[in-house]
Design a protein around this nucleic acid. Structure first.
Length: 818
RNA sequence: GCCGCAAUGGUGGAAUUGGUAGACACGCUGGUCUUAGGAACCAGUGCUUUACGGCGUGGGGGUUCGACCCCCUCUUGCGGCACCA
């Protein structure tokens, strides 16, 4: 090799040059070409960057640099999602306050992020645990509170006994139960962070009214340039069901029971009612001779773990209350039962059971010998008894509905329910309000003061931030009965902002997902202290490209959409969707498994960066496969990229400014410009690199390389290997300017056109030979050439040519029959 | 159980979206240079066959002159939801 490049040295050199020239800060006043390119910020754990960080940030930076060379005014900020449990647990273990360890970790992580050599604009850095940031998180809370979207209620909530805090629904996952767990082969609900089985607790907590936006969150999905998988997950999570609400009166009482059903057309087949064991009406409905049974059943249900209740193949259980409801359409008496197959958390916690049309009701009815009346069948004729038909069809045994389709019957029933004022059409969502209280220290305090006289009172905006106290003793026992903040008298005691009487601050902190639900709005405003955001800087929103892991589909990405819509409705924003385009980077695995410290299969980027440099490392990650699919790490593969970059260095050293390359080389260069650009445009980094490899494999065979070719090669490589490209650029073009102030090269379409091409000749669809033709050569002569091929002629002579197909400039296919 | 996505050489992956399957790279084999090579470079490399040829994109079927690509069906893997009425 003619020149040795010390990658480590040039990387340091160019990184400091970029920093000195502030080349990564955008011109905020130029909105026309703005490109807000955002990767999800990360938690500063104190560990070194892992391959996943590099795989997230490296390729996205390549795209950002490509956009910049194409004239975009790129804003690529970076920051830290630094509130959260690990720092607090670290404090409990080692006695180091979270603020201290977090700041240390941030500075460590920042210097490592800088090694990537990405165009991060550090002048607009964010840190969610900084009072300058969480002041505005608290402001956000108050905006939601003042607009009725934040409220307190007592509800059975998910509690993680290990993390010692409540969790939002989105943070509870269904995990398969391992061998050593109580229910092998089944599943259980566990904490998203630590997989510990969650338990239900009745607690008074703060919620954000995300369900108010359920319909819009669902409807707007269609217009988003997001992965369909993610849109699907959000759609399922929101879980819209269209049906009816029906009110049943209880015989001999004034009580009413309201149910939700998606099948009001089956009302004549509803033969009993089932309440969830937690249903509030259970106690009052229970007749004295049944109350002992009922109490026992409720107790049993409460003591059952989630695992047991979730077991889908479990036999149905239940008890009769002794009470009866009246079917408002045929005045039949319907026994009211209690069973844990009805969930208190969905709908009204009560159902009308139609055993002939619902598998679960059918199973229950058979077990408890309840009547089964067929009310829908495929053709409206009675089907064989003893089966359950849950599809839509034609009504029967349903008085005035008989003969109608299920769809028509639904409309009729809903209309009647409404006119009789006992229900009507209703849409039900699976989505629940977002529980944001956390019984932990290291989060943004909820800016509310509880006053005996005035109730929950908002802290005045001018008194924000409500700062975290520092006189907290970190203990492994806190969190059971009391939030850590409640142990600080100095924090807890405050005067009511309303009446000035002594009162108590809310002792909980906010879910860290609240911090991240709005940070993308703050980046362009990071240095504005007087307000959360400035109108002119908000013009940088929405984010043009957002990149991050798919695991956030129903958490962060849903919350962020909700907060954006809420802030729009409060008048702060003029858009309702935060992320125009979303991409999930894939996962890098090792031997097919996710990398994790516990498995001991992590790959440390360090040893590869020390040996090959960060350009080579990031280029290899991009070359492994499609960006959104990730791939399996292979120690050897990186040598391919290393060789390729070596070749490029070698080729550039052969620059000869007086030399003119031959036509075919020039053609190759123009093709490379076209196709590398096309690929980068679509974030197809792997094929972009392979096209550069093809070019360099040809160029390396030449002793002299013309200037245009060298120039183009370096420019095309620049987004992929930024440090090396800067070095080669300054070496061969003596430019004082960064290569990233240069424009992306322009190809000439006329130089790409081939005038002679090779096409395939097939006989009966089988490839039998190739011919070289002039582009757009007439059909007759092409067919003539094809037929005269020796390997083709022999098939023609042994059969009859029945059809000749010629797709211009593509293929000849001759159909021969014996 | 329901919904979504995927399956291509020894390996990672390409394929202008219905037109020469396997680009590019790893690995492997042979070679050059070297005291040495886990360096660098060159050549070869889907399977099968001495060859002509045959076979080949998870299995089976279909549409078509022609299918990795479209349709049906099955298998396997991954992800999501899961007694949601």
């Amino acid at each position: 090799m003619d020149q040795d490049i010390n990658y480590i040295e040039i990387e340091k050199k160019w990184q400091s040059k970029w920093a000195e020239s502030h080349s990564h800060s955008p011109n905020f006043t130029n909105l026309e070409d703005k490109f807000y390119c955002l990767t999800m910020f990360s938690y500063p754990s104190g560990d070194k960057l892992h391959v996943g960080h590099w795989y997230n940030y490296g390729p996205v930076d390549t795209y950002a640099r490509y956009k910049k060379m194409n004239g975009a005014n790129v804003f690529q900020p970076q920051g830290f999602d630094s509130f959260g449990l690990p720092a607090e647990n670290y404090a409990i273990k080692h006695g180091i306050p979270p603020a201290k360890s977090t700041n240390l970790n941030i500075s460590k992580m920042k210097s490592q992020l800088q090694q990537i050599g990405a165009m991060f604009d550090w002048s607009n850095e964010l840190n969610t645990s900084d009072p300058k940031y969480y002041r505005w998180t608290q402001w956000l809370f108050l905006q939601l509170y003042k607009n009725g979207l934040a409220y307190q209620k007592t509800a059975p909530v998910n509690w993680c006994p290990s993390c010692k805090t409540v969790l939002a629904n989105e943070q509870v996952k269904n995990y398969p139960s391992k061998k050593d767990k109580p229910a092998p082969g089944l599943s259980y609900n566990g904490c998203d962070r630590c997989k510990t089985e969650v338990v239900k607790r009745d607690l008074k907590q703060w919620f954000f009214r995300i369900t108010d936006y359920a319909e819009e969150l669902l409807a707007n999905l269609d217009d988003l340039n997001w992965p369909t998988k993610t849109k699907h997950m959000q759609k399922n999570w929101i879980g819209k069901s269209v049906g009816a609400e029906i009110e049943f009166s209880v015989k001999d009482t004034d009580s009413k029971i309201s149910v939700f059903t998606t099948r009001p057309d089956t009302i004549y087949g509803a033969t009993y009612i089932v309440l969830a064991p937690e249903h509030l009406s259970v106690k009052e409905l229970a007749t004295s001779q049944n109350s002992a049974n009922i109490d026992a059943y409720i107790l049993e249900a409460r003591n059952k773990s989630e695992i047991e209740r979730l077991a889908a193949d479990k036999e149905k259980t239940g008890v009769f209350t002794g009470a009866y409801a009246i079917n408002p359409f045929n005045d039949e008496e319907m026994p009211i039962w209690i069973s844990d197959y009805v969930l208190i958390s969905y709908g009204s916690g009560a159902i009308m059971a139609v055993p002939a049309g619902d598998e679960r009701d059918f199973e229950f009815a058979k077990k408890f010998k309840l009547p089964i009346i067929t009310v829908v069948s495929e053709d409206g004729q009675p089907n064989e008894s003893g089966i359950c038909y849950s599809d839509h069809g034609i009504c029967l045994n349903s008085e005035n509905l008989n003969g109608l389709t299920s769809e028509d019957a639904k409309v009729l029933i809903c209309d009647e329910l409404k006119s009789r004022d006992i229900g009507g059409a209703k849409t039900q969502f699976r989505l629940h309000d977002w529980l944001i209280s956390r019984q932990r220290y290291w989060g943004a305090p909820i800016p509310i003061i509880h006053c005996d006289d005035c109730g929950a009172v908002a802290v005045h905006d001018g008194d924000l931030p409500v700062q975290l106290p520092t006189d907290i003793e970190f203990s492994s026992t806190y969190g059971e009965d009391i939030s850590p903040l409640a142990t600080s008298e100095s924090f807890l005691n405050a005067d009511c902002p309303n009446c000035n009487k002594p009162a108590k601050r809310d002792p909980d902190t906010m879910d860290t997902f609240v911090c991240s639900s709005w940070y993308y709005l703050r980046y362009p405003n990071a240095n504005i202290d007087t307000e959360a955001f400035d109108g002119s800087r908000l013009n940088w929103l929405p984010v043009d490209l957002y990149v991050g892991g798919a695991e956030h589909a129903t958490m962060h990405l849903l919350y962020a959409r909700f907060i954006t819509k809420a802030l729009r409705d409060f008048g702060f924003l003029d858009f309702g969707e935060p992320f125009k385009r979303l991409i999930h980077q894939g996962t890098i695995t090792k031997d097919g498994a996710k990398m994790s410290k516990s498995k001991g299969n992590t790959v440390s980027p360090d040893k590869f960066i020390e040996r090959y440099g960060s350009d080579t490392f990031r280029a290899y990650l991009m070359f492994m496969g499609p960006f959104d699919e990730g791939g399996d790490w292979n120690d050897k593969g990186i040598t391919g990229i290393s060789r390729f970059l070596g070749k490029v260095v070698n080729i550039c050293s052969r620059i000869d400014r007086k030399y003119t390359s031959d036509v075919s080389t020039i053609k190759l260069v123009h093709k490379a410009i076209k196709y590398v650009g096309q690929d980068l445009d679509q974030l197809k980094f792997n094929t972009a690199i392979s096209k550069l490899m093809e070019l360099s494999n040809v160029l390396i065979k030449h002793d002299s390389i013309d200037e245009f070719t060298v120039k183009s090669l370096i420019l095309l490589l620049a987004p992929i290997a930024p440090h090396l490209s800067e070095e080669l650029w300054s070496l061969h073009f003596n430019s004082d300017n960064s290569i990233f102030t240069e424009s992306w090269p322009i190809y000439n379409e006329s130089k790409i056109v081939d005038d002679e091409i090779q096409i395939a000749v097939q006989v009966n669809g089988k490839h039998r030979g190739n011919i070289r033709i002039e582009i757009n050569q007439n059909k007759e002569s092409v067919l003539g050439m094809a037929k005269s091929l020796e390997t083709v002629a022999k098939y023609l002579s042994s059969g009859n040519l029945v059809k000749e197909i010629y797709v211009p400039n593509k293929i000849v296919n001759l159909v021969v029959k014996p």
